[in-house]
Design a protein around this nucleic acid. Structure first.
Length: 596
DNA sequence: GCCGTTTTCGGCCCGACTGTTTTCAGTCG
């Protein structure tokens, strides 16, 4: 397996899975095998690059990475390879490591296949397995049969066409359509999403749902007639699986209402949350499963999750927190946070309109008035009317100031007319812009333009791959202007497309805290940026955040809920989020009459 | 190989499903 000094998390995960697999073939201690598997899982779920953590001397932050594995990682990034790993891997055919990761193929199967078929080279290994399967050579190998041969073929096909994970809103929409449909069947007493969708992670693999029912067969048969199903993959007594027209799989699991709580808890996960929970249960001689809690051979059933957690002596834990990041300890001490709810949001402070100037970036689809009316429909108390700054190549400095003046007058007119047309309701309209932080840290608008705004959002939109220290300085400089209150989409990540830029978040968060700047949680589906783990870090450091939609059309303003999901995953309470404040408070915080 | 206010030694999550090797190993979540 090729290794190098700049391996990203995905590559490191693959390496560790290979080592774990190699140990499995060699009948190493199951605990050592598991240790590498755990380390791989931990890195896979880390929201930071292992290489960055290594540079900062913080590999120990990764659960499951102890002194030994940390030493190997150190050697990897110093030399580009790990001598010990090379020795271990060299004892086995490299082709087998290409196969690990194909659904249904683990280390043992992979090893047997390449041995028996005489495949040694990694290159083309999957293709050769496929050929062998087509020629019926696999079913002749001892331990395999016709079924397993076609399963392998199916597994490879799935592996090769595996796409990116779904974005949260897509998964949510599929699930909500299904839920509406399922609720039409009277036998369905309760229905909930499961897994990462229920935990509201930013991307989701499959849509899984649980149904509480006394009549599973009715539920299953109703499920298999879902109009948006393209194909039914499996249909058993209590579970079924179909392919949604989007190509995504949907699983349903049924359970009797009086036992539903344990099922819901079990399949919501996360895996690490459940493992930790079982370890704690074990100390009380309890054994947990999807069926309930077993004590001395007797299983107790639970209708609700709340009862399930209560039986373990803890508070019910909101699904968003179930990542084994301290939520279990907090629940045991009844110290879980009071997570923010979307109903607590009182305004949207970062959105775009179709205001007709030659903008540095994309403009919105709706007028200022339409955006404001939508905000009123949503029951907001205030709204920040923003746009990207005027393009620096299209206007000179003087023209930019004139343009901002014209636009400010436009907003004043709007304020006046809205007050007249909606006399019963007041909404506070704020004049803002999203301003580029240029590569040298300067803002794309001169001071004379900035003073006309109520506040500004500053964001990075260019030169995203500059060194970490430079990026940090750049962001700090951009944020330091008194009118700049919000750092927009802080990491610049685009889900399934690009990693965020490298920056020293500790430094930026400290600066934000000391200078009263707000870090944005951008609710745009491909952004969801700040990422949840950084939200948690920011909150621990006492930084204030703001949830914005960055809407470019009125319908985007409905995406606020996904930003709230991210905030909740980061343990945010309403008091941590600027736009839960009433206008009277917001005004004092945001609209300081600072001299520029 | 990791980990720890009951332990720095001695533990380490649980069950379902599947196919094939009739009693269980391998994989998965």
């Amino acid at each position: 397996m090729h290794t190098h000094k700049n391996m990203n998390n995905e590559e490191v995960v693959k390496l560790f899975r290979a080592i774990s697999g190699a140990y499995e073939i060699e009948d190493e201690s199951v605990f050592r095998i598991r240790a590498y598997e755990n380390a791989a899982d931990s890195i896979e779920h880390a929201n930071r690059e292992v290489k960055d953590l290594w540079e900062e001397g913080r590999l120990g932050d990764l659960p499951g990475v102890g002194p030994n594995i940390a030493g190997h990682i150190d050697e990897l990034f110093r030399k580009g390879k790990v001598d010990h790993f090379q020795t271990v891997l060299a004892r086995l055919p490299e082709a087998m490591f290409e196969l690990i990761g194909i659904p249904g193929i683990g280390p043992k199967t992979a090893y047997k296949l390449v041995k028996k078929l005489g495949i040694s080279k990694a290159h083309g290994a999957i293709r050769r397995i496929k050929e062998a399967a087509r020629l019926g050579r696999i079913q002749k190998i001892e331990g395999f049969g016709k079924e397993s041969e076609s399963e392998i073929l199916k597994g490879i096909e799935e592996y090769q066409r595996r796409e990116n994970r779904m974005l949260l809103p897509q998964a949510t929409q599929i699930a909500e359509e299904l839920q509406t449909y399922m609720e039409r069947e009277k036998a369905v007493e309760k229905i909930d999403t499961l897994g990462s969708l229920r935990r509201r992670t930013s991307t989701v693999g499959d849509v899984d749902v649980a149904v509480a029912t006394k009549d599973p067969s009715k539920v299953i048969s109703h499920f298999t007639r879902f109009p948006h199903a393209k194909d039914i993959l499996a249909s058993g007594e209590n579970t079924a699986r179909l392919v949604h027209r989007s190509g995504r799989q949907i699983d349903v699991k049924t359970e009797k209402p009086d036992r539903y709580g344990a099922l819901l808890q079990h399949f919501t996960g996360s895996k690490s949350h459940n493992i930790h929970l079982r370890e704690i249960a074990l100390e009380q001689n309890l054994s947990l499963s999807e069926h309930g809690i077993r004590k001395k051979g007797k299983i107790a059933a639970f209708a609700s999750e709340a009862e399930f957690y209560k039986a373990l002596g803890m508070q019910w834990i909101p699904p968003e927190l179930r990542e084994d990041q301290g939520e279990i300890e907090a629940a045991l001490e009844a110290k879980l946070p009071e997570l923010i709810k979307k109903e607590e949001i009182r305004g949207d402070l970062h959105l775009h309109t179709d205001y007709p100037w030659r903008s540095a970036h994309d403009t919105g689809a709706n007028t200022m008035r339409e955006m404001v009316e939508k905000a009123m429909e949503l029951g907001y108390e205030y709204v920040g009317i923003g746009d990207h700054n005027p393009s620096l190549t299209e206007y000179n400095r003087k023209e930019i100031i004139i343009e901002i003046k014209k636009r400010s007058e436009e907003i004043d007119k709007l304020k006046y007319s809205i007050e007249i047309t909606h006399e019963n309701r007041t909404i506070h309209i704020l004049n803002t812009l999203e301003i580029d932080i240029r590569t040298d840290g300067s803002l794309a608008i001169p001071d004379e333009g900035l003073v006309m705004l109520d506040y500004a959002v500053a964001s990075v939109h260019s030169s995203m791959r500059i060194p970490k220290a430079k990026m940090t300085e750049r962001i700090l400089k951009g944020l330091s202007h008194p009118k700049v209150k919000i750092l927009g989409h802080p990491t610049g990540r685009l889900l399934n497309q690009r990693e965020g830029y490298e920056a020293d978040w500790d430094k930026i968060f400290s600066f934000a805290k000391e200078n009263g700047k707000f870090i944005e949680i951008n609710a745009w589906p491909t952004r969801l940026d700040l990422p949840d783990t950084l939200v948690r870090q920011a909150i621990r450091m006492g930084v204030q955040l703001v949830i914005d939609t960055d809407a470019h059309a009125i319908e985007h303003m409905d995406l606020m809920r996904y930003g709230v999901d991210v905030a909740r995953r980061g343990w945010a309470e309403a008091r941590h989020i600027l736009n839960t404040r009433p206008y009277s408070e917001l005004e004092k915080i945001l609209l300081t009459k600072t001299q520029v």
